[in-house]
Write a protein that binds this DNA or RNA. Sequence first.
RNA 1: GCGCCUGUAGCUCAGAUGGAUAGAGCAUCUGCCUUCUAAGCAGAGGGUCCAGGGUUCGAAUCCCUGCAGGCGUACCA
Length: 575
Amino acid sequence: MYGETATIVSLSSLRLLWEIRRSLVMKQRIKNALEESLKSTVANPEKYLGFVDISETKDKQYGDYSTNIALVLAKELRMSPRQVADSLREKITTGTIIKKVEVAGPGFVNFFVNEVAWGFCLQEIFVSGDAYGKCALGKGKKVQVEFVSANPTGPLHIGHARGAVVGDVIARLLSACGYEVVKEYYINDTGNQMSNLGISTLYRCRELKGDKSPLPDNSYQGEYLLDVAQEILEKYPDILQKPEKEATALCGTFAATVILNGIVDDLAVLGVNFDRYFSESSLYETGLVTETLTFLEQNGTAYRTQDGTLWFRTSAFGDEKDRVIVRATGAPTYFAADIAYHHQKFSDNYDRVIDIWGADHHGYIARMRAGVEAMGHDVKKLDIVLIQLVALLRNGIPVAMSTRAGEFVTLREVVEEVGADAARYNFLLRRLDSHLDFDLEIAKRQSSDNPVYYVQYAHARACSVLRLAEEKKIDNLKWHESIPSFLTLEEEIAIIRLLISFPDVVRSSAQSVEPHRLAFFLNELASMFHSYYNKYKIISDDEETTLSRLFLVGAIKTVIKNGLTILGVSAPQRM
RNA sequence: GCGCCUGUAGCUCAGAUGGAUAGAGCAUCUGCCUUCUAAGCAGAGGGUCCAGGGUUCGAAUCCCUGCAGGCGUACCA
């Protein structure tokens, strides 16, 4: 049986292989065929080529690929959709890859791909290995992703985690698409909150020395400042003897540094790290804020009112009203520093600048874009991504999350409870603009059947099968041109179709800044593999079938591994 | 009041560029481990896609209005 099939395959396989390699993507192959047909069917085809769109079908009865081009062109050509479809179909030559073409429904043209052709796609995955899924979309382009940027006034909580994970994965996606990515964290280390932090910490120092007077109203009440105070007292035993102003400043700086170090550590536990930490105070030190303000005032986009306040004319850029950038007291607002910061970003010659913000900052978008534009930069290069906030619940009841009041479950506590992989995947399974309830009890209870394990388990399972094959001395994971002819089951073709769409998923996830698509893709792939695994034996007495299926399993393993890597989730070999 | 986001199965959520019969997980029920990992699989039930209009060959998807929830509307971040 094997010999007979092999003969048939070897006759056509070289040609098939060559053809598939030439086009690489099956979809492109179909599209080419359709375009050729269009050229010989309609009068001025160049006018309609832009409408050609091929989509993957969901239902097997409609073939493997489908186009609605006839429906789109019908009116223009003054023909019925079915007529257009029929004439297009007649001009499409079937052969080694396209088995047949059908017209169905209101006028869809459906393409059926030769079953044997699919298996050849696996070789591409095998050859690319770890690089499979990557592309050169952003080759030679620099992009900056700024995210988290939480104020160094307290530890991160669950609300920051979503932004951290999403920002990190967006960076990874862009990186997979060939962009040179810089991950940046902006540190707000000046202004009122710093002095508040200093005051709060100083009070804690006094408290440790026996002074029980209560903390001022708007200070940071968290007990974590007691630890910071302890450190300060050890390092500066005379802190309480110093002048109030000096002691406060010292406490503020010290506390901010300690807290930021803690934030960096916590993020590292979550698998998030940055290339650059950019300090707001450095903008003042280098004079960039002053420079920016002068520039705005000189080009007329900023004006002074009688009391000395400097206003930025954001309303001229679509904002609902003008904004203050320098108070009457002469102190710049945070917004002033933000404009300077974005000016700095654009001065670094990025091709794209991405800000990832919590959705509660959405009212800030218009003025930020105004700032970039007024500074003479191409505002189209700025992409502000909003992420809906996370509501932390315990047994369905909201948990108060206030840095100031010091009542919160820290990010670190959550990660230590549910694990970094589960925490990350939890955030990645939702659209960015979807509100998210994170219930601590549910997260704990469901930690063992969290969706992340489903995908990881599929990977571990694939590894396990391949491991067993190795133990049995089966010479697996070697390409042979007869492999495709042993992978023609409906389930196998469905899996291959999914596998070859992986690069598209990565690309579209990156382009549309929607990491959840990749996560859902992996869930679907895992599901198909689990199902296939349960229905069919991978390793059997039939050598050819075994080798072919092992090759498929190898490809599945590669894609899951590559996908999880982009999501920053581990791909365990055993579970 | 105005602006942004959301509204899809009992619950949590997917449904890119408008496409053919709207999907998954959890929960409920029924089966499957002497056989490659049961953290798995197979099957069942479960829907006014918030409501009402409009656009067209075709709408969960686009437009308008209304309703509901969240967020924002600072010389706070």
